[in-house]
């Protein structure tokens, strides 16, 4: 996983609430056995509409997405994160995210930034014309207009994102503790 320090660029001001995983990547695109190429099916229902925001040349090459409450609700398909990554999205800003989606995004090195609705509204406005800068180290989102908004992030997630750490590899280092737990479990709950 590539480390993330700063994500800077144009942002797609989607703004929609309750963007579900079926909207991000419809089920017919889940029939793949690799993680690549899913950007093609991303937001298919929205992209079917002429003049949609994703195909607007203004936002070509955008690496940030700004959305409304409850982004990524619905299924556990990690394909949603893979599709966003394949589109070139490196960070998403929203007032809230579904639990499963934010975990999936994190595990693929996508930064999810939670900010209050009024701040998101301001960023949606800026994004129409100008880039946005997200600095993970200082936990701040800034704009070319001197806006500065700080955000909270789980310290463990921050550490992993800044260093591009592989969680599986980290947990495997705790093998002895896991083995000890298993020994105790075999005594306490032998039916498992």
């Amino acid at each position: 996983m590539n480390p993330i320090h700063v994500v800077e660029g144009r942002a797609i001001p989607l703004g929609m609430k309750n963007v579900d995983t079926d909207v991000i990547i419809p089920a017919q695109y889940l029939k793949t056995i690799t993680r690549k190429g899913l950007g093609e099916g991303a937001f298919e229902t929205i992209r079917a509409q002429p003049g949609n925001i994703f195909d607007d040349p203004e936002y070509a090459g955008a690496n940030i997405l700004i959305a409304g409450d409850n982004f990524g609700c619905g299924s556990s398909r990690e394909h949603a994160a893979w599709a966003l990554l394949d589109m070139g999205i490196k960070a998403i800003i929203a007032p809230s995210f579904s639990d499963i989606f934010s975990g999936n995004a994190f595990k693929n090195g996508i930064l999810t930034v939670v900010l209050p609705q009024e701040v998101v509204d301001r960023l949606l406005e800026v994004a129409q014309t100008d880039p946005i800068i997200i600095d993970l180290e200082s936990q701040a989102v800034t704009t070319p207009f001197q806006d500065r908004f700080t955000f909270e992030i789980d310290p463990f997630r921050k550490h992993c994102l800044l260093n591009g750490l592989d969680e599986v590899g980290m947990t495997l280092e705790q093998d002895a503790e896991i083995a000890a737990f298993e020994t105790k479990m075999a005594m306490d709950r032998p039916w498992l």
Binding site: I100, N104, K107, E167, V168
Partner: peptide, 10 residues
């Protein structure tokens, strides 16, 4: 609870 593919791997 449901998990994503990276968590499946984990």
């Amino acid at each position: 609870f449901g998990i994503g593919t990276s968590e499946i791997e984990h």
